[in-house]
Amino acid sequence: MPIQCSSCAKNRAMLRRPKTGHSLCKSCFFWAFEEEIHQTIVSARLFNPGETVGIGASGGKDSTVLAHVLKVLNERYDYRLKLLLLSVDEGITGYRDDSLETVKRNQQQYDLPLTIVSYEELYGWTMDAIVKQVGLKNNCTFCGVFRRQALDRGAMMLNVDKICTGHNADDVAETVLMNVLRGDIARLRRCTAISTASDGEGGIPRCKPLKYAYEKEIVLYAYFKKLDYFSTECVYSPNAYRGHARTFLKDLEAVRPSAIMDIIHSGENLSVKEGVKMPVQGTCSRCGYISSQALCKSCVLLVGLNRGLPKLGIGKHHRLHDKILAQQALTQQEEKKLKAMNF
């Protein structure tokens, strides 16, 4: 016997919502999914009329769905936003060049302007070249730091008011777990914030309109909407520890589907003892980007790369940053410590 849609009570249900367990027809699911994102946008006051909003587009499912839904909602509710796509080309052969093709197709389908900024033009290094020097162990550190800044720089070039990224509920919940496992209290406090605008961090405000959207529902949405996305994992595989957290989250979700939201709720209601040190934000003395240290993370990494000392930005070597800033020579021992990456 076909199951009836629990929302309209008319159509045949086509899917069971991973988030609530309700059986819905296709159009009711689309409606609920989009409406929830609209509610998130409205209740968190993510945008103001007339703003230019850059959508961080990677070609993956999250940003593809985000671009699609934002366009739909912008028209449906007359947000009066100027939407544009912003992509970062990390320079990873066989991964980024393919996914960028997807972004370019999206651009045509959604009729949104697209800008691509590349690591190569910003930093003089492609990820392929970085991996050649640092190996596969810490390359995600480089990539993450560089991407964050690259998006900001691209957005500044385009006079964008806000950047939104495709982080979904699973990503946020996973980050909560990761920060607990690492004991990173500063990030734990920040990671559930839906936007960084109120943090006083400087830089271009960022937000996550998909913060409460389940990854599984994003896939369902893309599947039924027949959205075109690129679904290969980055060829330079991610960190194993995060992999553990991801698996754990998936297992939790299997035991109790609301676990993802429950973890986010936990994260939103945590509060940190006063007197626990929080990093003070300043600006990088080399490039002017926001940083809690004298040198921003990406400058440290860059200096390390350019001087053949790739380990510089990986561990805690704050002491050495001043030396580098002052262009002093490092001792042999210091050099040795920062060099060897292999094995």
Binding site: C5, R17, K19, C28, A32, E36, T40, A44, D262
Partner: peptide, 17 residues
């Protein structure tokens, strides 16, 4: 309003019609 608690209620209501 902008919380997981609220978003969960929202999802429930939207799915129940």
């Amino acid at each position: 309003d902008a919380s997981a608690c609220h978003a969960t209620l929202m999802s429930e209501q939207l799915s129940r019609g």
